[in-house]
Computed example of a mutant assay.
Amino acid sequence: MIIVTGGSGQAGRACLKDLIAHGHEVCSVDLAPPADPSIRHSRVDLTDYGQTIAAFSAIDDRVSSQVTGIVHLAAIRAPGLAPNHVIFETNTVSTYNVFEAARQLKIRNIVWASSETVLGLPFANPPPYVPVDEEYPGRPETAYSLSKLMGEEMAKQFCRWDPETKIFGLRLSNVMDPERYAEFPGFDDDPRKRNWNLWAYIDARDAAQAIRLAFDSKLTGADVFVIANADGVMSQPNDALLDAVYPGVPHKRAFGPNETLLSIEKARRVLGYEPRHSWRDHKAG
């Protein structure tokens, strides 16, 4: 069984659906129930370590078989949704509790949602180069981003303590459901509407694919991966966007006119990730 924390969120809903479609047994652990009432769910406050380790151990008919891994998506999901100290405390403590409960129970397969914000979002100042990738050190600009960077640092130490453990952090871009794609053409009149994350996004279904691929990976240790769609949200070509907002920013490598500027090359190479969805296909259909 795979426990998915935060199963009621955007990425969580898609993740549960994808895991079930690929034959996995799942249970959603969250303060809110998942949208699909057929999915097993238990209400757990992950900021309480006792509740966390109890939930990962057994919950009657909800968690009744051996837990093989954790997908940790639960968090206050963006800056500004609570006071800064509440976001930092909630996200950092809950992530610690998930990692520590898994360690004590010898659950060694963990995939969790880090964030694109660790890369320095919002890009009020130009990024150091484009496309931005995992080689760029974390540059948190908010309490939310700092909480995610703390999770990445904790993962390294947990895997040092137990080298058989895998903790992969996915730096998910702005998660989008297909229903939002009708908004995208409205971004074109002003490049600054979406420059805060270099015009990137991630279809929830592709986020779910990346989570499953990370979970199925036989690698061990702590690692992080940028997860975005293959294209950006704008119809305008990248060169025009960069000239308008970030003139002179260095190009680390050549890239296509509409290619994502949050590099997914590492996820492609290591996980076999390949985005299958695009707002352009949805628009055309």
Rank of each mutant, 00 (worst) to 15 (best):
M1H: 08
I2V: 15
I3F: 13
V4N: 03
G6C: 13
Q10R: 09
Q10Y: 01
A11I: 04
C15N: 12
L16D: 03
L16W: 03
I20F: 04
H24S: 14
V26A: 03
C27P: 08
S28V: 01
L31N: 05
A35W: 07
D36I: 03
S38E: 14
S38I: 12
I39C: 04
R43P: 01
D45L: 03
D45G: 07
T47I: 00
D48E: 10
T52K: 07
I53A: 06
I53R: 09
S57M: 06
S57N: 11
D61S: 13
D61M: 06
R62N: 06
V63E: 09
V71N: 05
L73N: 03
A74L: 08
I76P: 01
R77M: 05
A78L: 08
P79G: 00
A82E: 06
P83K: 09
P83L: 00
N84Q: 12
H85Q: 12
V86K: 14
F88W: 03
T90G: 00
N91P: 12
T95M: 07
T95E: 01
Y96V: 13
V98G: 07
V98N: 11
V98R: 08
A101G: 02
A102Y: 04
L105G: 10
K106I: 04
K106C: 01
R108V: 11
N109M: 13
N109F: 12
I110R: 06
T117D: 13
T117A: 15
G120I: 09
L121G: 12
P122L: 02
P126I: 06
D133E: 02
E134D: 10
E135Q: 12
Y136M: 14
Y136L: 14
G138N: 05
G138M: 02
R139E: 00
P140F: 11
P140G: 09
E141F: 05
Y144W: 01
Y144K: 06
K148S: 09
L149Y: 07
L149G: 09
M150I: 12
M150L: 12
A155P: 02
Q157G: 06
P163Y: 06
V175N: 01
V175P: 06
P178Q: 14
E179W: 06
R180D: 04
E183D: 14
P185W: 02
P185E: 10
F187K: 05
D188N: 10
D190N: 10
K193H: 00
N197A: 07
I202S: 00
D206Q: 00
A207T: 01
A207I: 03
A208K: 02
A214R: 08
F215H: 02
K218F: 01
L219M: 08
G221P: 05
G221E: 03
F225Q: 11
F225W: 10
F225Y: 15
I227C: 09
I227Q: 06
D231K: 00
V233L: 04
V233H: 04
V233Y: 03
S235A: 09
S235Y: 01
Q236M: 04
A240V: 14
L241F: 01
V245T: 14
V249K: 02
V249G: 03
H251E: 07
A254C: 00
G256W: 04
P257V: 15
P257M: 15
T260C: 13
S263W: 09
E265F: 14
K266A: 02
K266L: 02
R269N: 14
V270S: 11
L271G: 00
L271C: 01
L271A: 04
G272Q: 07
Y273G: 10
R276A: 15
S278K: 11
R280S: 07
K283S: 13
K283E: 13
G285P: 10
